[in-house]
């Protein structure tokens, strides 16, 4: 039965890539001496799956990894699974911390397929709170928001709007990090993962496009983005991939209760 870990990625380590994080996990799990299953063949690899990739430079409070254990090695007793969080956290680099662990049904589909949307907080420079508010209102009022994105070296035109499930402004008082003299404005966004995962950078492109011609003089610049939740929507109910942080009904943002 796979073990699912939820972990954060905060601070400097946000500049590492998804592949880098995968390697950090492989090393940490070896150091923890967890009986991880391996793929077969000439180049056996540990069987880990991470779900939706977090773009390099983004922070997260809600990353997940499923670890398949080797059935031929002594299993981890169910009651000890919860205790893995501090053990593995200690072996991971600073900035990556496990806050929940649980067992996943063997028949469950992969994280990648299961997750339907993600909630992000995104902070901007070079734009005031009210100017950002205008851009948000303008985007929510549109039926289509075309953006250009690069795919395999060619530019394709995509409609961003169906993937934007919700947008809401945040109070400047909640801005993270050091105080800055620049205008700081933030928003909460819920972005769909289907048909493909929309990145915060693409949302920013869409917002910049809203401002073109008559909007704020200076386009907003992405400062910091943090994935705060991943959601699985099933039969109108929403839940997170690990229990312990139940999502309330509706589309409101959800206060975080960290398990640790």
């Amino acid at each position: 039965m796979p073990v699912r870990f939820r972990f954060s990625k905060l601070g400097r380590i946000r500049f590492t890539s998804q592949r880098d994080v995968a390697r950090m996990w492989e090393r940490a799990l070896r150091r923890a001496d967890l009986p991880v299953a391996h793929t077969r063949g000439f180049s056996p690899r540990p069987r880990l799956s991470f779900g939706l990739a977090l773009p390099t430079g983004c922070e997260s409070l809600a990353e997940y990894v499923d670890v398949v254990l080797d059935p031929d090695r002594p299993p981890v007793p169910d009651e000890e699974v919860g205790g893995l969080a501090p053990v593995v956290s200690r072996l991971l680099p600073e900035g990556i911390e496990v806050d929940a662990v649980g067992l996943v049904d063997r028949g469950a589909v992969s994280l990648q397929q299961e997750v339907t949307s993600c909630t992000w907080t995104i902070w901007f420079r070079a734009v005031t709170h009210s100017a950002l508010g205008e851009l948000v209102a303008s985007m929510l009022a549109r039926e289509q928001v075309p953006i250009v994105r690069e795919r395999k070296g060619t530019s394709v035109l995509d409609d961003l709007r169906p993937s934007v499930l919700d947008l809401a402004l945040l109070s400047p008082a909640e801005a993270p990090g050091a105080p800055t003299t620049e205008p700081v404005a933030g928003l909460m966004a819920e972005l769909a993962t289907r048909p493909r995962g929309v990145r915060p950078g693409e949302l920013v492109s869409g917002l910049v496009a809203m401002g073109a011609g008559g909007g704020p003089a200076q386009p907003p610049v992405l400062d910091r983005a943090c994935r705060t939740q991943q959601w699985i929507e099933c039969d109108g109910e929403r839940r997170e991939p690990l229990g312990g942080r139940p999502g309330a009904a509706g589309r409101a943002p959800y206060a975080l209760e960290r398990a640790s």
């Binding site: 601070g11 508010g133 109070s171 050091a178 975080l256």
Partner: peptide, 17 residues
């Protein structure tokens, strides 16, 4: 405007120090 989104934890700034 929504408030009460105490989502980004204080640890962020600690790590930047």
């Amino acid at each position: 405007m929504r408030t009460g989104l105490a989502i980004l934890p204080a640890t962020t700034s600690v790590l930047q120090d």
